[in-house]
């Protein structure tokens, strides 16, 4: 009875993992459309981040969960471990990367548009930030 319940929970979690992978695919499609259709650099950067976090992090987590519960133990553990570690590094490096790109663009003179107020440019003029 207990093992049956555990198997059921495992199957439900595996299905959740597959749903996450599907969500990731949809996010990737949205990011691709946004990347082509958005008007300027900063808006495209937004689409890029949707693609990286939504389209890479979610599927990796989903894949890891699926592998953990639905693939036979030794192989499943390998796949899950690699997936989770990769997901962690994607999660922390992607925002830093897009932050560095945006900073470089702002320093190179591209201004966000449309923007109500550009406080970074103001800070830079006043010398608060370099």
């Amino acid at each position: 009875m207990v093992t049956d319940a555990l198997t059921l929970i495992g199957q439900v979690l595996g299905c959740l993992g597959l749903v996450l992978a599907l969500v990731g695919a949809v996010n990737d499609l949205i990011a691709a459309i946004g990347f082509v259709r958005f008007k300027n650099f900063y808006l495209r950067l937004h689409a890029l981040t949707v693609g990286v976090i939504g389209g890479t992090f979610y599927p990796l987590i989903g894949l890891g969960t699926y592998a953990l519960f639905c693939i036979a133990p030794p192989l499943g553990y390998y796949v899950a471990g690699v997936s989770y570690v990769t997901a962690f590094f994607v999660l922390i490096t992607a925002p830093a990367g897009s932050h560095a790109i945006a900073r470089g663009a702002h320093r190179a003179g591209y201004r966000p548009e449309p923007a109500r107020e550009d406080k970074l440019a103001k800070d830079r003029e006043e010398g608060v930030m370099e």
């Binding site: 922390i92 490096t93 925002p95 830093a96 560095a100 900073r103 370099e130």
Partner: peptide, 18 residues
Amino acid sequence: GRGMTVIVKTVTRITFVT
């Protein structure tokens, strides 16, 4: 010797070890 912002530096410290 200024380097990039604190965000990039922190993430680099974590990934650098690996």
